[in-house]
Design a protein around this nucleic acid. Structure first.
Length: 508
RNA sequence: GCGGGUGUAGCUUAAUGGUAAAGCUCCAGCCUUCCAAGCUGAUUACGAGGGUUCGAUUCCCUUCACCCGCUCCA
């Protein structure tokens, strides 16, 4: 690679995240949380337009899952019902799910080099004499060899016993020479890092019971599986869908709203007979890919990435990430949604811990009793918003705004702007009348101030797909100018047809 | 969490150990018959806290936020 030659090209084609963040703030999509107090790391507020955008994506997901779920392999619509569970549940829920306990990664710090390691990522080479124990980093053979050569005092690998740091007694820590360190005994005791947000239930400080803000919405679905089954006449296979906030005490929030401590998920748990799980896994992979294309993500920016066997969580029988090429991951991709075949892991765990039978008696399979298997398409709503904004962000030096947001009409926060050409004469009353008519059905803006060019530019920047302009011709012949955002092309349509025109354009 | 960088108005940039300046945006008017024109006017800033000093946006310390790299990402 020749940076000197490639740099100018990259500057033209690479979208800078800073510009997107600036536009989001300038136009009221996304603000730093607690902005006037200097902010707070890992939290973001959604402004007027960001909220509309997020709601549009959420509502379309809900429609595609619950209101009009897809047609299944048998030619009839699949069955999915909605749910809205509490953010705080009995703490035992998170013990059963493995979020409390197994969820935490013990970390050790090196007092000398100030580096931090996951305890289970450090391999300790224990010598057969009283020389220092050598800490090396798992899966890094080059480091191990270099380390052995430098501080191994001529020993070879076979002169050592290997142990994971998690298996080493705390009292032996002072014998360990940390990676990169010069003196031994610099590693701290392993510290538990739990990503679950803790809170206390009860107003009195003394009587508080520790509880957790949910780390994912999925568990709320699993623990209501039996309630839903007993109350809503669903039968296998079926899904339960939920949209809501989730919280993770991330070690290092980064990349705008991509990794934040409070975020929003759109999760659906699909319950089915174990024999059918692979079929449904493939079905949902295909459906979910279609969804992201329908809301406007370019196929080229989407990657369906199946996890390798060694990458799979132990209970998963298959996981596929839908990844998006965000500007900050480009040319790589970052997670947008995960589709997992979770087997019967979750329901089995909750059955064990809650001592409540969660088996399904299937009359269509000779009254076979089984714990259903689960396919989980789990999407990040806030990550989806980020992907939509990144996808829409289009630099265009040929227009006054210099940039516009190319949202699909269905996702755009504002569907249209009604613009009287001047603030005088008969334009304003006619525009107001049209606005009052359209707003019953669409999210529309009426903008009267300033000249027409400025108003087009403003609408371009917030991604409004259509502008309808009222001029003298409107008064004389009843037509308006319809201006399309991406092409800036104009056509005249009848005032009476504006609503129908917009309705037709907005169809996903 | 570590290392490096940055922090002056919504944005882009000035100046200064002693009244913080401008352009654009935004807002209010005027003017305007289709893409940020022009005129008039208004609001708005030294991230926060502490220290040194007669006086700190400026020097020092702490802290917060953001960016880059590392680490982490069940």
């Amino acid at each position: 690679m020749q940076p000197a030659e490639n740099t100018p090209l990259e500057q033209e084609t690479t979208i800078d995240m800073k510009d997107i963040v600036a536009l989001c703030k300038r136009r009221g999509f996304i603000f730093q949380a607690s902005d006037i107090y200097g902010g707070i790391n890992g939290f973001w507020d959604y402004g007027p337009l960001g909220t509309e955008l997020k709601n549009n994506l959420r509502d379309y997901w809900w429609k595609s899952m619950v209101t009009t779920p897809p047609i299944g392999p048998d030619g009839t619509p699949v069955q999915i019902v909605g749910l809205d569970s509490a953010i705080i549940q009995n703490p035992e829920v998170w013990v059963a799910s493995g979020h409390v306990g197994g969820f935490s990664d013990p970390m050790v710090d090196c007092r000398e080099t100030k580096k931090r390691y996951r305890a289970d990522h450090l391999i300790i080479l224990i010598p057969n004499d009283d020389t220092p124990w050598l800490a090396t980093i798992e899966d890094d053979e080059n480091f191990l060899k270099a380390r052995l050569k430098k501080v191994g005092k001529g020993k070879s690998l076979s002169d050592f016993t290997q142990k994971n740091l998690t298996e080493v007694e705390l009292t032996d820590f002072d014998k360990i020479l940390a990676p990169h360190a010069k003196t031994k005994g610099t590693l701290t005791d392993p510290k538990e890092f739990n990503l679950m947000f803790e809170t206390g239930i009860g107003a009195s400080q003394d009587d508080k019971v520790t509880a957790y803000l949910r780390g994912e919405t999925a568990q709320g679905i699993f623990i209501n599986y039996k309630n839903v089954l007993d109350s809503s006449r669903v039968k296998m296979p079926f899904g339960i869908a939920q949209v809501g906030k989730a919280f993770r005490n991330e070690v290092n929030p980064r990349n705008f709203i991509f990794r934040s401590r409070e975020f929003e998920q759109m999760e659906m748990e699909w319950f089915c007979h174990p024999d059918d799980s692979q079929k449904w896994f493939e079905f949902w992979k295909s459906e979910r890919q279609k969804f992201w294309q329908q809301v406007g993500l370019n196929q080229d920016n989407i990657l369906m990435r199946d996890h390798d066997a060694d990458e799979l969580v132990f209970y998963s029988q298959g996981t596929c990430d839908i990844e998006y090429k965000y500007p900050f991951t480009d040319p790589d991709f970052g997670e947008l949604e995960g589709i997992a075949n979770r087997g019967d892991y979750d329901l089995t765990k909750h059955q064990e811990h809650s001592k409540t039978k969660l088996e399904y008696l299937d009359p269509e399979r000779n009254n076979e009793k089984y714990i259903p298997h689960v396919i989980e398409p789990a999407a990040g709503l806030t990550r989806g918003v980020l992907a939509l904004i990144c996808e829409a962000y289009t630099v265009d030096p040929n227009r006054p705004s210099g940039v516009y947001l190319n949202f699909t009409p269905a996702m755009a926060p504002k569907k249209a702007a009604i613009l009287p050409l001047t603030a005088k004469e008969d334009h304003v009353p006619t525009a107001q009348k049209l606005y009052l008519e359209l707003r019953e059905e669409f999210a529309v803006d009426l903008d009267i101030k300033q000249n027409i060019g400025k108003r087009y530019a403003r609408q371009d920047e917030i991604g409004t797909p259509y502008c309808f302009t009222i001029d003298n011709e409107t008064i004389s012949d009843g037509t308006v100018t319809a201006r399309e955002r991406n092409t800036m092309a104009q056509e005249r349509i009848a005032l009476d047809n504006v609503a129908a025109y917009l309705r037709d354009k907005i169809k996903p």
